[in-house]
Computed example of a mutant assay.
Amino acid sequence: MCREALLEQIDQASFAVDDVKLYLNTHPDDQEALRFYEQHRDARLNLLQQYAQQFGPLTADLVYNTQCWTWAQTPWPWEKEA
């Protein structure tokens, strides 16, 4: 998957997670919303991990390389690939 398409999917999943978190603040017992949150939270994490494997971590907590700190070694998401 290309970088831009993956970033767009991450943005969409992030929006869904953030939106339902706001809803859950006022409707904490809504089981359907809780399932929606879990589903999209897991999808977002999967997408973030996929992005990190292909293009480098989007956030510092996604650095999984124990041999080298790779957080600042890859292009930032808004930078064009060389």
Rank of each mutant, 00 (worst) to 15 (best):
R3F: 05
V63P: 02
W78V: 01
W69G: 03
V17W: 00
E38K: 13
L6H: 04
T59M: 13
G56D: 09
Y37W: 01
Q50W: 03
I10M: 10
H27T: 01
E32Y: 02
Q9N: 09
A52F: 09
E81C: 12
P75W: 06
K21C: 06
D61P: 01
A5F: 02
Q12K: 15
N65I: 02
N46W: 13
A72H: 11
E4R: 12
L34P: 00
W71T: 03
V17A: 00
Y51I: 04
Y51T: 05
E38W: 08
M1V: 11
F15L: 03
R41G: 03
L6T: 11
Q9L: 12
T26N: 01
R44Y: 04
E32L: 01
Q39H: 11
T70S: 11
A43T: 11
D42M: 10
R3Q: 13
E38F: 03
R35K: 12
K80I: 03
T26H: 00
Q54F: 00
Y37L: 08
N65T: 10
R41C: 03
W69T: 06
A13M: 06
D18Y: 06
L24W: 00
L58C: 08
E38M: 04
V17E: 03
Q9I: 02
E79M: 10
D18I: 01
N65F: 08
P75K: 14
L62Y: 15
N25E: 08
R44C: 12
Q53F: 04
F15K: 12
D61E: 15
Q50I: 05
K80G: 04
W76R: 15
M1K: 04
V20R: 02
D30A: 05
W69L: 09
Y51M: 09
D42F: 08
N46D: 14
Q12N: 05
R3G: 02
L58F: 11
Y23M: 04
L24A: 00
L48E: 15
F36T: 03
I10V: 14
H27Y: 05
T59G: 06
E81Y: 14
A16D: 01
L47N: 08
N46M: 12
T74Y: 14
H27D: 01
W69C: 07
W78S: 15
E8A: 10
D61Y: 02
T70F: 00
Q54M: 14
Q12I: 09
A5S: 10
A33R: 02
W78T: 03
L24C: 05
L58G: 09
C2V: 12
A5N: 12
H40L: 05
Q9P: 04
Q54L: 15
Y23D: 02
A16G: 00
E79T: 07
F15T: 09
L48Q: 06
D29R: 11
Y37F: 12
L47E: 05
W76H: 13
Q53R: 13
